[in-house]
Design a protein around this nucleic acid. Structure first.
Lengths: 333, 333
DNA sequence: GTGAAAGCGCTAACAG
DNA sequence: CTGTTAGCGCTTTCAC
């Protein structure tokens, strides 16, 4: 004989109250006489009753679940963001449906659809670019959305980021001040606004500030993987450059190791600066000079912002920019 | 005027069929006349109808959602497992509710409870140890569970792993054959069966095989973080050891970098072997010799196994052991 | 092949 | 403070 699931009805019956009262107790509604509450609580415990979140979701139209779209769970950058998201979500009693998009816009739309189908109360989107199709979906879905560590060039959705342009400018300036005149700029796809409209401009800003010429041949666009960086290093060697500004830590590690393995001494013969300050920057040798981003905080603040929106609180600032910094490690002189 | 959500009723009405028929079409039930199907499909498209997964879950008692419990999303080992889990889940149309346990047994029970509350169809558990309280919960919940890359010392639940003991033995043997007589064994908590009942025994097996004495003073137990490894390296220096077998890649990277930063030359003066073959092993300098675990596959196979159990297919093998290997990189001679 | 109708387990007015 | 009563949107017998 299979043990039946115990429902709110069973509790109500056993405690000799109505379902409504049990529901009130379970949901912490204060309109219950202490004695009644106690009685119900006892029955709940005796029967080992656990409310069914699906039924609750259907009845209340709130699932206390948020969707999180990430290009890749195993990417250090995004997984450190996820840590912050998860912590705050747990704090506010939300569960997370994690959906991988593989940084593929078709899949992004697909997973967004299935998240909506699941009636998530809100969505955190991480991704390297927001296509118009996606933005349209965002608008259609009345579901609140916040972008974490991701740029929406049209600024239609709330987001949490750092000022990538300024940070890149600062870091490249640091490289220039150290005497580098020819600095490569290595980044992910330039189809992505975060790279073309922010980082690249920051790089150009720095050059301009020091009256150095901008040479498009020194700009390299590739995917954000270690392997790509490693391969790319060989092209860098052939160029007359003494430093590189890289927009992603795994990519930077690849460039640096590729160079090192080819006998180039970092930082003496070549300097490298990177952008994310993930834990990887401390694990490589030499360690990597980097822009410091509060990754955990970006995730956490994004989630916090989302809870506010879901709660219909007034939002004062849609586009949160968190402070960043620079940390000099051993990949620069 | 807020646009109303379109329901199955609207579709039925517009297509002049019953809700049952719409339901059949949506669920691919073959008992529908092709013409009717076509008509319904058209209305679905016209109305832009999306079935409500919550209502469906309540009615059908299947949510097509599985819970994934991980100690830490940002840990390289677990996030590479998660990649495999996620891919296969997507393939079988399951969504994933990701729950962080922080490797804390209290939290594990808590998140397990909330996953059950959400009526997940199954659970993938990753964790470094299964407490009795947790095992009890597993049993009580009729929900299918599979362990991925995690040991249940009592073998009550299905699991996917490699043979950690044999793999460790092989790797330590490799170290011994290279002439090391005093080899440290650095691992996570020995309260965890995977370390005490598998890896440590493998280490001892290897020593025995080569008739080397076992010295408990050479066994170090700590948490699985880079930082802990880094600190630990200072204790290693004071000992008469020439090599270390480390049970986790981040930990190993910490040990190695700590040693390197103290002027010890790897592998000439000290050899290190690690256990997980995460991408980190290729990013450190020197690269790390490692047991090779098919991390992605462990996750993928675990998820596949779970789909079978959820589907009530016959399972031939509850405890899957995937093949492992050894790869020699530059942290050993 | 198709429809009618009874829930799934819970919340949310509303009434008292 | 508590109970009654409709649903929430869908699946699933059971008839026809």
């Amino acid at each position: 004989m299979e043990k039946q699931k115990v429902t709110i009805y069973d509790v109500a019956h056993q405690a000799q109250v109505s379902m409504a009262t049990v529901s009130r107790v379970v949901n912490g509604n204060s309109n219950v006489k202490p004695l009644t509450r106690k009685k119900v609580l006892k029955v709940i415990k005796d029967l080992n009753y656990h409310p069914n979140a699906v039924a609750r979701g259907l009845a209340s139209k709130r699932t206390t679940t948020v969707g999180v779209i990430t290009p890749n769970v195993a990417d250090t950058y995004f997984s450190e963001l996820a840590l912050g998201i998860d912590d705050i979500a747990a704090m506010y009693k939300y569960n997370i449906i994690l959906a991988n998009s593989d940084d593929n816009s078709k899949k992004e739309i697909h997973v967004l659809n299935t998240l909506l189908t699941k009636q998530v109360d809100g969505i955190i989107f991480m991704g390297n670019e927001i296509t118009d199709a996606l933005r349209k979906k965002f608008r259609e879905a009345k579901t609140p959305i916040v972008l974490a560590g991701s740029i929406d060039s049209k600024k239609t959705e709330p987001s949490v980021n750092i000022d990538y342009r300024q940070a890149t400018k600062d870091e490249v300036s640091h490289l220039i001040e150290r005497g580098n005149k020819h600095i490569a700029f290595v980044t992910g796809s330039l189809d992505q606004a975060i790279n073309s409209k922010h980082r690249l401009l920051g790089y150009q800003d720095a050059l301009k500030k020091y009256q150095l010429p901008y040479d498009p041949k020194l700009v390299f666009s590739t995917d954000r993987s270690y392997h790509s960086g490693y391969k790319l290093s060989q092209r860098l060697i052939k160029l007359n450059v003494s430093a590189a500004m890289v927009s992603n830590d795994e990519l930077a590690a690849g460039v640096m190791n590729g160079l090192t393995d080819s006998g180039i001494r970092i930082p003496d013969q070549f300097e490298i600066a990177t952008s994310d300050d993930t834990k990887l920057t401390k694990m490589t040798r030499p360690t990597m000079t980097s822009i410091t981003q509060p990754l955990y905080d970006i995730g956490a603040v994004a989630m916090r912002l989302l809870t506010k929106i879901m709660n219909k609180d007034k939002i004062t600032n849609q586009d949160v920019l968190l402070p960043y910094g620079l940390i000099k490690r051993n990949s620069t002189k």
